[in-house]
């Protein structure tokens, strides 16, 4: 599904990605982990075409996507910070994003799930952080795409919304979708991820299942194994 070859990215003098190679197979949840500043977001943004790599190739389903834009129709992305134009209402924003993508969408189901019905006509500027994140989630999951990328999806969510989100992600996985998640919450990774991709110094430091990681580091819980990996 995703095939990244020899990816390099420098921001002025700071090398963020340094010859990264990564293959992610179709279907399943991969968690991209790493210390702060290890290049997780840069990697994701390269995949989305928001950051332009200095060198290397990114192939989605055998097709090079660098400098292209239409492949994003088959990709859903949940950005880290949800900040929307404050003068639009929730329903207007949803309609707008629908308008931009010529695709079927099931927003009503998600609006009901996250209890957003009463907020539909409220201005986005007046919503709380958690509610904005719910809108963000609706915008991400309302389209049926093969690749779903979630950057810190749990930010600001209350426990009930978190349970809904987990169910939602599992449901998408059952449909055979490829899901990439970055997060710092290890219990979330432990519960959800099939595979862990650990980034360090712009390269893949570890790739494999949660069990493999625990075995390799001789630790019983994920948090400690990650800590061992970092040190």
């Amino acid at each position: 599904m995703i095939n990244i070859k020899n990816l390099h990215k420098k921001f002025e003098k700071l090398t963020v990605l340094d010859g990264l190679d990564l293959t992610i197979n179709k279907g399943g949840i991969s968690a991209i982990l790493g210390p702060n500043g290890s290049g997780k977001t840069t990697l994701i943004k390269c995949l989305l075409g928001m950051v332009i790599p200095n060198k290397g190739d990114i192939l989605l389903d055998e097709e090079n996507v660098l400098k292209k834009w239409d492949y994003r129709n088959n990709l859903n992305y949940l950005p880290q910070i949800a900040n929307f134009p404050s003068n639009l209402s929730v329903i207007e924003l949803i309609k707008m994003v629908k308008n931009l993508r010529p695709k079927e969408s099931n927003e009503q189901e998600l609006i009901d799930l996250f209890g957003l019905n009463e907020f539909l006509n409220k201005k986005l500027g007046n919503l709380s952080g958690g509610t904005k994140q719910k809108v963000n989630i609706v915008l991400t999951f309302m389209f049926d795409s093969q690749l779903v990328i979630l950057d810190e999806p749990t930010t600001g969510l209350d426990p009930i919304a978190l349970i809904h989100l987990k169910k939602l992600i599992k449901k998408e996985k059952e449909k055979g979708k490829t899901i990439l998640i970055t997060t710092h919450i290890m219990s979330f990774v432990d519960e959800m991820a099939d595979e862990i991709v650990f980034l360090l110094d712009g390269k893949i430091y570890f790739k494999g299942s949660v069990d493999k990681l625990k075995k390799q580091t001789n630790e019983t819980d994920l948090e400690h194994s990650i800590a061992t990996l970092m040190s």
């Binding site: 989305l48 928001m50 834009w69 990709l75 950005p79 949800a82 900040n83 929307f84 931009l100």
Partner: peptide, 16 residues
């Protein structure tokens, strides 16, 4: 002010 929103648009299938 619309930087974050622009980022949301950049992830949609539209040319920059």
């Amino acid at each position: 002010n619309s930087k974050e929103f622009t980022e949301l648009l950049l992830a949609q299938p539209i040319k920059r």
